[in-house]
């Protein structure tokens, strides 16, 4: 039986954007995209693609569909999951998707997943590096009525079930859930594989399917924000450089450690 795997992926501002290029429009409560620095696929979403590819390799027969919602996709960025080996991509592109909150995003994505047919496994990055909310996967699982297995460090496919080892601060827990289910992953699932030149060439011949909210029977009011952003600003930071000098490297290290403890940093 062919397995249908859905990966939810998000285009985000490059988290390695230098601070000097990071700007916030406080009046509009918006982050201003950095000039000349292209966005990237969210790092944990790339981990999600990697997890899906590993499941596909283990299952043998599987289709990986990547779904994303937004309004200003950069195609050479968003096609990366296809270049890595995902089979197809659906982009929900709509002006109303410009400023979705987590609830709105989960609403759109869950509708889109339903529209694709029967999804066996939905994999999401644990959180996106732009807002770091980690709300959307939980919202999708709630709306679709499927189990959510979070922070997977390994995923093993059984007969109609999946076994997931979930990272915890003091170790890990192992859960089993029936399919369909939703799994969130972070970097512990393994480093995302590189795309290949061949993969990029093949992906260049694929055109992502584009849907609007209308295609999902959603109106703008269905996804209007439930949260109100009151204030957005870059916190002021004072930088002070203090040189710790010791008799030798070991002594400098000891003095640095003492200083850090004194300042209650460690």
């Amino acid at each position: 039986m062919s397995l249908n795997i859905i990966v939810c992926a998000k285009q985000v501002m490059d988290p390695e954007t230098p601070l000097s290029a990071f700007n916030v429009d406080e009046a509009a409560k918006r982050v201003v995209p950095a000039q000349g620095i292209p966005p990237v696929v969210n790092g944990f979403c790339e981990n999600a693609v990697e997890a899906a590819l590993k499941i596909k390799e283990a299952a043998g027969d599987a289709t990986i569909t990547v779904i994303s919602v937004g309004n200003d996709f950069v195609m050479d960025v968003m096609k990366k999951p296809l270049s890595m080996g995902a089979d197809q991509m659906i982009l929900i592109q709509d002006p109303a998707a410009e400023n979705l909150d987590a609830l709105g995003t989960a609403t759109v994505l869950s509708k889109a997943i339903e529209k694709t047919g029967e999804a066996d496994i939905i994999i999401c990055g644990q959180q996106a590096s732009d807002w770091d909310n980690a709300h959307v996967p939980l919202g999708i699982s709630e709306m679709l009525g499927v189990a959510c297995l979070s922070e997977a460090r390994s995923i093993d496919l059984g007969d109609g079930t999946v076994t997931v080892a979930s990272s915890r601060s003091d170790g890990y827990e192992v859960f089993e859930a029936p399919l369909p289910c939703l799994i969130t992953v972070n970097n512990e699932i393994g480093q995302p594989r590189y795309p290949t030149l061949r993969g990029i060439m093949q992906a260049s011949r694929k055109t992502p399917e584009t849907w609007t909210l209308n295609d999902l029977d959603l109106s703008e009011s269905d996804v209007s924000p439930a949260l109100t952003l009151s204030e957005l600003f870059v916190p002021a930071s004072d930088r002070e450089c203090q040189i710790i000098e010791g008799e030798d490297e070991a002594d400098s290290g000891r003095l640095l450690a003492l200083k850090l403890r004194e300042e209650k940093i460690i």
């Binding site: 292209p38 050479d76 096609k79 590189y194 990029i200 992906a203 260049s204």
Partner: peptide
Amino acid sequence: TSEETRKQIVSLVRDFV
């Protein structure tokens, strides 16, 4: 080679490097 493909290839090589 298309511009879109070139950008992906450059990005890939940059990541590898």
